[in-house]
Amino acid sequence: MALINLTGIQPIDYTALADEAKPGEGETIAVPVAQLIEENADLFATAGSVGAIIGTETPFDALGDIVGKIDFAVIEFPAFGDGRGFSLAVRLRKDFGFKGEIRAVGPVIPDQALFLLRAGFDTVEASGERKAAFEAALERFPAFYQSDFGGQVSVAHTRHSAEGQRKAS
């Protein structure tokens, strides 16, 4: 496995907490979101840093209670076609103002690199042999029709900015 860094963030090195396990003092752990919602006081007290592992079936409003306490989020794609993962990232950024790392895990493909970045993801776990393809895909498009969470401003706006008019002419 390789870690693809979409945004240049300093990626978090975490351990996924095994079932029923207790975190070590000061450990950086990732925990399924349901577990975080149910019983979290001890866990947050002990661990050094906690991330939520979020399945795509998670309704976004379930994140409201924990989002202020986590440092990073790991969104698990069961299939690359499960587009709910993109909306979850958008919700984290937009509805909750989440600033921490959002990582995509699961069978996402290089051709989704820009979609992931633009929906608010920072990093992707992918097989090592796909790293180059991911990085190439990130460079693919020079402009976008939507403003996004990767900081891009839509073409509809740049067209009417001074710089946009220079480019378009």
């Binding site: 587009g83 993109f86 909306s87 958008v90 820009l114 979609f115 633009r118 976008f144 029709y145 509809a156």
Partner: peptide
């Protein structure tokens, strides 16, 4: 057409 082209969130709908 423009808004929906390569939409980062809505390219893998149900």
């Amino acid at each position: 057409r423009q808004w929906s082209s390569f939409h980062p969130e809505f390219s893998f709908l149900p």
